[in-house]
Write a protein that binds this DNA or RNA. Structure first.
Lengths: 121, 121
DNA sequence: AGAGTATATTGACGGACGTCGATATACCTG
DNA sequence: CAGGTATATCGACGTCCGTCAATATACTCT
């Protein structure tokens, strides 16, 4: 698209506020994307996901607890957020709860995020 | 790495909390990454970046203001956050301020994020 | 049943975040 | 200089977020 023409005019300081720049996404689309980034915008959640990704299969909560610098209720809190956003799932075995990453959801998130970031190139 | 062996044991419910799972990143590394995601974790910031990416060069604040559903002080607020994180820069021309994306910083952020998400594959 | 363990939930607290009206600052024009 | 415009900053307000101690729930073993 020839977005250059109005910009050259603008350089002269003669016009402003009239390029009619509109985002390519609606605000609610942007909200959904922001929610994707939000899931990843906390160090504890990143570390939990990291452990789950690198330990294919099952990791129990006490292992996760040992991997991050917060107390058990806080770990449960972040695990709940990740579960509610569909990125991980849990399975109760005896008195333990094993968590694992949901590869399909993780890949879908990765693809959505990469589609956004591709425009940054 | 053979992460499977302890996991098979674990399946029987006989052991727990001993795989010594440690995140591949320190907490402060995770904090820096989380800050990257935080920059993108707001719909208004995503929309602002979108407009700046798609209008190579200069966009003045009033144009940005027209593109998002918040008032002028809030636009300035988000522009400041993006500027402080190095993703955009501004140039004053007459009574206007033109913003543009910093391609180098944007690409660097994209690469950091993609490196994280690659593990999700 | 009773004691111990693993995990989730609740409730409270402090602090950070998003928003906006009001105001300040800087510039331009007449 | 006076009046107008563009943008930034300030100050206040409400809401959301992260954390944890305490408690609840569910399971295991004896």
């Amino acid at each position: 698209m020839p977005t250059d023409l109005p910009l050259l005019d603008r350089r002269l300081g003669e016009r402003c506020c009239d390029i009619g720049a509109r985002p390519s996404r609606t605000h609610s689309e942007a909200e959904e994307l922001a929610a994707d980034f939000d899931d990843l915008a906390h160090p504890v959640r990143l570390q939990l996901l990291d452990v789950l990704v690198r330990n294919e299969g099952r990791v129990c909560v006490c292992d996760l607890e040992a991997a991050v610098p917060v107390k058990q209720p806080t770990v449960s809190h972040h695990l709940r957020l990740l579960r509610e956003s569909g990125l991980i799932e849990s399975e109760k075995v005896g008195q333990w709860v094993y968590y694992r990453i949901r590869r399909d959801a993780a890949r879908a998130l990765r693809d959505r995020v990469q589609r956004v970031l591709a425009a940054f190139a």
